[in-house]
């Protein structure tokens, strides 16, 4: 007997697959192909005659110091949000996993931020961290100029890092909690009998055993902070001040839709895509091997 469920009716199978394939094709492969085409041509601001220019768009991109600034900002942003979000969510999951009274309430509360749209979260952060009107305003009152993302680039970068991490914590938390709960309870009990304190058990037993989940979340979080951070930047900082928060994905939008240079934006998005592919490939090739799978 064949263990796989198979369709002997090829026509039916094709008919069932086609809607999904069509969606993927229309919304993913076609735009990607268009972007590749645009990246090698020069497009009029108002559309129309495309002119083949070869690598010229890419040369422009790579010769632009503003672009390299954007790459560096993006990398800092991706590493910082991923690290911050993973550390906090793992900590929270470890605490909730101890099943102290009220733990269900906390797991619910920690997941909520993920259900919030990026612009909404961005708006909330903009108010909370507004130097003149929000929560930080009170602190600025005591220590003038301690916090001003409108003029200080590091402050602005920190603001979007905090916002992005805050949003992804809920998602990471759920994955970590599920992974922790799949560890047999007797393992931590055996650790307790062996004399390990709560913290030691977390470090020696629980965290190594959630390594596969950790690996998965690192990839998802890094990718997400490269490609899915537009909303937050657009609401809070608009890439400023002085391009301190000019993430690659925001720069694509700005160059394409504000500066009306579609071809340049297309080239930039191809670069971003290749970067994310390379990053993911690198992780699967070199990091995954070191992860213990049961």
């Amino acid at each position: 007997m064949d263990k796989h469920a198979t369709f002997s009716n090829t026509w039916l199978a094709t008919a069932l697959i086609i809607p999904q394939l069509l969606l993927v094709f229309v919304f993913f492969y076609w735009p990607t192909a268009e972007a590749v085409y645009w990246a090698f041509t020069l497009e009029q601001p108002f559309g129309g005659s495309n002119q083949w220019v070869g690598m010229q768009n890419f040369q422009t991109v790579f010769n632009d110091s503003k672009y390299w600034n954007s790459v560096i900002v993006s990398i800092i942003f991706a590493l910082a949000t991923t690290a911050l979000s993973l550390i906090i969510s793992l900590g929270l999951a470890l605490l909730v996993d101890r099943r102290l009274p009220g733990h269900q309430l906390f797991s619910f509360a920690y997941f909520i931020p993920y259900a919030m749209a990026a612009p909404a979260a961005g708006l909330a952060f903009r108010f909370i961290f507004a130097p003149s009107a929000g929560f930080m305003a009170a602190i600025n009152e005591w220590y003038p100029n301690l916090w001003n993302p409108a003029t200080n680039g590091s402050h602005a970068l920190l603001l979007i890092i905090l916002c992005q991490s805050w949003q992804s914590i809920g998602y990471n938390f759920v994955f970590f909690l599920a992974a922790l709960q799949s560890i047999p309870r007797t393992l931590t009990e055996a650790g307790a009998m062996d004399g390990a304190s709560v913290l030691r058990r977390m470090a020696d037993i629980q965290i190594p055993l959630v390594a596969p989940t950790l690996f998965f979340l690192i990839i998802i979080n890094l990718t997400d902070s490269f490609v899915n951070s537009f909303g937050i930047v657009d609401i809070t900082t608009h890439g400023g001040p002085a391009r301190a928060t000019d993430l690659m994905v925001y720069k694509i939008y700005f160059d394409g839709f504000k500066a009306q240079d579609y071809s340049l934006a297309a080239a930039e998005s191809i670069v971003l895509m290749l970067l994310v592919i390379a990053l993911t490939f690198f992780q699967f090739r070199f990091v995954e091997r070191r992860v213990h799978y049961n």
Binding site: P184, L187, E189, A190, M193, L209
Partner: peptide, 20 residues
């Protein structure tokens, strides 16, 4: 007292060995 302060060692039904 915490388990580690009681001086007991335990063998579990499913062995509870650390898989990693």
């Amino acid at each position: 007292l915490e388990p580690r302060e009681r001086g007991c060692a335990m063998v579990f039904q499913n062995y509870a060995l650390y898989p990693h």
